Amino acid sequence: MKLSLKKELPNIIMLLLPAIYLAYIWNGLPQEVPVHWNLHGEVNRFGSKLELAITSLSMPIITYVIFLIAPFIDPKGQIKQIGAKYGNLKLFIVALLSMLAIFILYNANNSPELSPEFIVPLLGILFMVFGNYFQTIKPNYFIGIRTPWTLESPEVWKKTHRLGGQIWFVGGLVIAVCSMLIPSVYSMKIVIASFLILALIPVIYSYLYFRDIKKVV
């Protein structure tokens, strides 16, 4: 897999957007800005402008770098077999995190509180996208539901990701819809509870299915 500047250009543009916006508002930012929020979106720690810049800009950049190098260091080379869908997933995640970075910077400049009304629907969409991609992901060490049992057996990987894809898509849809129907004070709590459930079910299923096929053998 060779890097192509043309293919990576949309990602680079997305990465530059938060930096450009930060440069635009930099002089107007106070010396102390909110850098950490609780589940209700209330500020619980202030820091310097530099800390805010590092915190917000590093999220999409680090994610992009991980996506960029993963195909080259994947021992099984399975990520390369995902093809264009891997690039689409990379662009979506980078774009989502860049939007989140801009939102954090905007709130730091205009309002100390970080409203979950914008973040929660995005998280729901993120779960839906991952659910949609789970069924196309080949066994690898970087992306997907990586348990000892899915990594041990391609069949367990396939079955687990089929189930995981379905429940993550439905779970993400439920989160996105509920965020518009319930008070925002409960939104992040629902997201955390949902994430724990969505993460736990495939892990348990992968173990049980692996145990069952071992009994048959």
Rank of each mutant, 00 (worst) to 15 (best):
W157Q: 03
I143D: 05
W149N: 10
V35M: 09
E51Q: 13
T147M: 01
R162P: 00
I13G: 11
D212E: 15
M99G: 15
H36D: 05
E155L: 15
A101R: 02
L151G: 04
G47M: 03
R146H: 10
I93R: 04
G87K: 14
T55D: 11
A176P: 07
V217C: 09
I82Q: 05
I192E: 01
I104R: 05
H40T: 15
I62R: 12
A108K: 00
Y133E: 10
T55R: 10
V35Y: 10
R162T: 14
G165V: 02
L114S: 02
Q166C: 12
Y209K: 08
A95N: 04
L100T: 12
I119P: 00
L9M: 12
C178I: 14
P116G: 06
E32Q: 15
K214S: 11
D212T: 08
V156M: 02
I93K: 08
I93G: 03
I73E: 00
I143F: 15
T136I: 09
L198Y: 01
Y24L: 15
S48C: 04
F134V: 00
V191R: 05
Y24G: 10
V185L: 04
E155K: 13
I190W: 05
I182D: 03
I73C: 06
L17F: 11
T136G: 07
L15Y: 00
K215H: 11
T160Q: 03
Y21H: 06
F67K: 04
N44F: 11
L196V: 15
H40S: 12
V191P: 04
K189M: 08
Q135R: 15
L97H: 07
K85V: 07
W168I: 03
Y21M: 14
M188S: 07
Q31C: 09
V203Q: 09
A199F: 12
N44H: 15
S153Y: 09
L173R: 02
I93M: 11
Y21S: 13
V35D: 08
I201P: 09
A70V: 00
I13A: 06
V129P: 01
L105Q: 13
L9V: 10
I137N: 01
L15T: 02
I13R: 03
Q78E: 10
I182W: 08
F67T: 00
I73P: 07
S48N: 07
I13P: 05
M14E: 08
A84M: 09
I82T: 08
K215Q: 13
I25Y: 08
L200D: 09
A23I: 14
P202W: 01
G165N: 00
F118L: 14
M59E: 06
T63R: 01
G124I: 06
H161E: 00
